[in-house]
Amino acid sequence: MSMDLEVKKFSYSPEYLLAGTDIRVTTAVKKAGADLKVGAPVKLDSSTGKVSPVGKSDGVAALYGIATEDFKADEEAVIYLTGEFFADRMALETGVTAASLEVAFRNIGIFLK
């Protein structure tokens, strides 16, 4: 039996979505209406009760929260409803910007940094 005594260097650079603890983080569980990526702003479909990513043409009227992790369609998805988040860590659809969602997020208790 041989031992590997070579010095190895490891590093880990986590990508944090949560930006602070000044505001209480709350979550809800909703069924995913489409695949979701961690950090994706989501909208709630009032007729189905499912959440899906916010697209460029959606506007901000149905903005609901932010996906906590990756979810497949029809899975139970945990969604952040309040808290502070890094805008540059969000998974945005093409044509959607954090700046365009900032005020609407603030109105529902989500603050972008």
Rank of each mutant, 00 (worst) to 15 (best):
46 S>G: 07
108 I>K: 05
46 S>C: 10
19 A>L: 00
80 Y>S: 01
85 F>T: 05
92 L>N: 00
49 G>P: 11
1 M>N: 14
80 Y>F: 12
109 G>K: 02
76 E>P: 06
16 Y>F: 15
69 E>H: 13
41 P>F: 03
68 T>A: 04
109 G>H: 01
50 K>M: 13
57 S>T: 15
89 R>M: 12
61 A>L: 11
74 D>H: 06
45 D>F: 08
63 L>C: 08
65 G>V: 01
73 A>N: 10
23 I>D: 05
56 K>L: 07
48 T>I: 02
14 P>H: 08
12 Y>C: 09
82 T>Y: 01
106 R>W: 06
6 E>F: 13
72 K>P: 09
37 K>H: 08
47 S>C: 06
82 T>C: 01
86 F>S: 04
69 E>Q: 14
86 F>K: 14
35 D>R: 02
75 E>G: 09
32 A>D: 01
3 M>P: 09
16 Y>Q: 14
19 A>K: 03
70 D>N: 15
12 Y>I: 12
95 G>Q: 02
80 Y>P: 03
49 G>C: 00
11 S>C: 12
80 Y>L: 01
17 L>Q: 07
71 F>C: 04
85 F>M: 02
82 T>V: 00
33 G>A: 04
72 K>T: 15
107 N>V: 11
78 V>K: 15
106 R>K: 15
94 T>S: 12
81 L>G: 05
49 G>H: 05
7 V>F: 12
63 L>K: 10
110 I>Q: 06
56 K>Y: 13
2 S>M: 14
57 S>M: 09
103 V>P: 08
87 A>E: 08
5 L>H: 06
58 D>R: 11
83 G>K: 02
42 V>E: 02
100 S>V: 10
25 V>N: 02
91 A>R: 10
52 S>M: 11
26 T>F: 02
63 L>D: 08
37 K>A: 13
3 M>L: 13
12 Y>Q: 08
37 K>G: 09
101 L>S: 07
24 R>N: 05
70 D>L: 03
92 L>K: 05
25 V>W: 07
99 A>D: 15
79 I>Y: 01
4 D>G: 08
42 V>A: 09
77 A>Q: 03
94 T>W: 10
20 G>N: 05
2 S>C: 13
16 Y>G: 13
28 A>N: 09
71 F>P: 11
96 V>D: 02
83 G>A: 05
23 I>A: 07
81 L>K: 11
6 E>K: 15
20 G>E: 00
102 E>R: 11
98 A>M: 06
97 T>K: 14
61 A>Y: 11
68 T>W: 03
64 Y>F: 15
84 E>K: 15
76 E>A: 15
77 A>L: 05
95 G>E: 05
52 S>D: 04
39 G>A: 04
69 E>L: 08
14 P>F: 06
72 K>A: 12
90 M>I: 10
83 G>E: 00
81 L>C: 07
77 A>M: 02
108 I>P: 14
91 A>E: 00
107 N>R: 10
73 A>V: 13
23 I>P: 12
8 K>G: 03
66 I>A: 06
100 S>P: 14
46 S>V: 06
33 G>K: 08
